[in-house]
Computed example of a mutant assay.
Amino acid sequence: MDTSNLRIGVILGSTRPRRRGESVAGWVLDQAEHRGATYELIDLRDHPLPLLDEPAAASTGDYTHAHTRIWAAVIARYDGFVFVCPEYNHGLPGALKNAIDYLWAEWLDKAAAIVSYGNGEGLRSAEHLRGVLSAVGIAHVRPQTTLSNRADFDGYTATPNEHHEHGLATMLEDLELWAGAMREVRAQR
């Protein structure tokens, strides 16, 4: 399958002032640089969405606020996503959940992969995120990449090893295949 025309957004799911996610997202983008698809950073800090303030449900597509229309236009451009997701108190960050909740059609029938990190490698946040992604119609690939705050960082800098690089490559390969397939599904809808 030709993946050269696929666009994948790498969503940095933390907005904290000091966050490990910047380093993780940078690593993902570096590893994806020579792949067929185009990978681009989507930093939630660049899209400061207030707590969900749209009067209508996202499934209606009736977006009344400019910040929602801008966010919708950003997400609509992509065929798939890599969610870089920390674990906060056994779940995903509120800013990420809020950003997902704002939209529906822009997520529908797209593909996603998850890179999680935390004290427990972000496994609980990734499982929480999978349920949220399913609810908005995103097909998420099974492989995921996990990083431990204790073993895979030097302070706030990610230090993934060869095992992580191999796992990420496998995950991105699956993501690109699914993103291409889901593009066909969207065309049929």
Rank of each mutant, 00 (worst) to 15 (best):
P55I: 08
D154S: 14
P48F: 12
S116W: 02
Y88M: 06
E40I: 06
V185K: 05
V132F: 03
N5V: 15
D109E: 11
T157L: 14
D101E: 09
T60V: 02
P50F: 09
E165K: 13
G36M: 04
G36I: 06
A126I: 02
G137D: 07
V74F: 02
G155M: 06
D46T: 15
K110A: 04
T145K: 03
A139F: 06
A95C: 07
H67Y: 12
G167C: 13
G21N: 09
L49H: 09
E54M: 03
A158Q: 06
D154G: 13
R69W: 03
R150C: 08
L96F: 00
R142S: 11
A158L: 09
R77G: 07
A37V: 07
P86V: 05
G61R: 08
L177E: 15
D46H: 11
A187Y: 11
L6N: 00
S116Y: 11
P17H: 14
D46F: 04
R150V: 14
S125W: 05
H140W: 11
V28F: 02
H163V: 11
H47Q: 10
N161W: 00
R142D: 06
D46N: 12
D2Y: 00
L52A: 14
N89E: 13
N98Q: 03
A112K: 03
Y117N: 04
L133W: 01
A187P: 00
A187W: 10
Y102C: 08
L92Q: 05
Q144N: 12
D154V: 00
A73L: 06
L41V: 01
L6W: 02
L108G: 10
G26F: 02
D101T: 15
T145L: 07
N89F: 09
D152H: 07
N89Y: 13
H163E: 10
Q31E: 14
